[in-house]
């Protein structure tokens, strides 16, 4: 299945235990191809976010995490973080500068790029998330949906090959969710989304893995997995009332046409 494509992420037997003894990841193995978009779903506290933090060396568990074939170690963190962009769940954690411009420029500045290049990247990134009119605004005074989009721009400006977003749809109203989905679909990168919003995952991804209690319990094509209601139920997942696979497929078609 993976032979002819470049592997973007290759995780083998990853275990992670928090200092307080919580085993967040147990023997996780996962392969993600370049250009794939993958939804990581699971109930609260399943270890989804911990998995993301392991992808660019913020947390280091036992086992190997390879990004484009190179194993993460303390000497190549800089390169890994250039390749893997993480967007955190709460945009107030992601946006810490006094203006939107400074926040989006923060990554490129740390890459020690030239000023002209930084400006170009900031403009590009803000244009992609449709926030180019807000350069000199204070991030705190934006709406939640706008903050979320700026948070994504702060990662886009670093031009990563892999972009991983924690809970892209949380706290967003319907329209903001849809406009964000359009933006996310238009990004041609390897994409990972951590969520427990199944309809949203269905809009964005073709492949899904389910994590529960630190283990990957299912991995496959999204609509295949969603059509096993017992599997979803066993892991405290399910469709919101009124949703069905048919409706999801219909919604997805609408978004693309």
């Amino acid at each position: 299945m993976y032979k002819n494509k470049n592997l973007a992420i290759e995780i083998e037997n990853l275990n992670f235990t928090y200092p307080d003894g919580t085993e967040a990841l147990k023997d996780v193995s996962l392969k993600v191809c370049e250009g794939e978009s993958l939804a990581i779903i699971g109930p609260n506290g399943a270890g989804k976010s911990t998995l993301l933090l392991n992808l660019n060396g913020l947390l280091k568990g036992n086992g190997s995490v390879k990004i484009f074939g190179t194993e993460i170690n303390s000497s190549n963190l800089r390169d890994v973080r250039k390749k893997v962009g993480l967007v955190f769940q709460n945009p107030d954690d992601q946006l810490f500068c006094s203006t939107v411009y400074e926040d989006v420029a923060f990554g490129p500045m740390n890459l020690r790029l030239k000023e002209v290049e930084i400006e170009r990247r900031v403009n590009d990134a803000l244009l992609k998330v449709e926030m180019n009119g807000y350069k000199n605004h204070n991030a705190f005074h934006l709406s939640y949906g706008q903050k979320k989009r700026v948070a994504i721009a702060t990662i886009l400006s670093m031009n990563p090959d892999i972009i991983a977003i924690d809970e892209p749809s949380s706290n967003l109203d319907h329209n903001s969710q849809l406009s964000l989905a359009r933006i996310l679909i238009s990004l041609l990168k390897t994409k990972l989304f951590v969520t427990h919003d199944i309809p949203y995952a269905a809009l964005l991804c073709d492949r899904v893995i389910i994590i529960d209690s630190g283990k990957i319990v299912a991995d496959g094509l999204l609509f295949d997995i969603l059509s096993i209601p017992e599997l979803l139920e066993r892991h405290r997942l399910g469709f919101p009332p009124g949703f069905s696979i048919e409706k999801l497929k219909e919604d997805k078609n609408k978004l693309f046409h």
């Binding site: 660019n56 500068c97 400074e102 923060f106 740390n110």
Partner: peptide
Amino acid sequence: YFAMLSRGYDGDLILN
């Protein structure tokens, strides 16, 4: 701090 590290922070805020 995690969000800063993710974007290549290495100890000094470089701003123009």
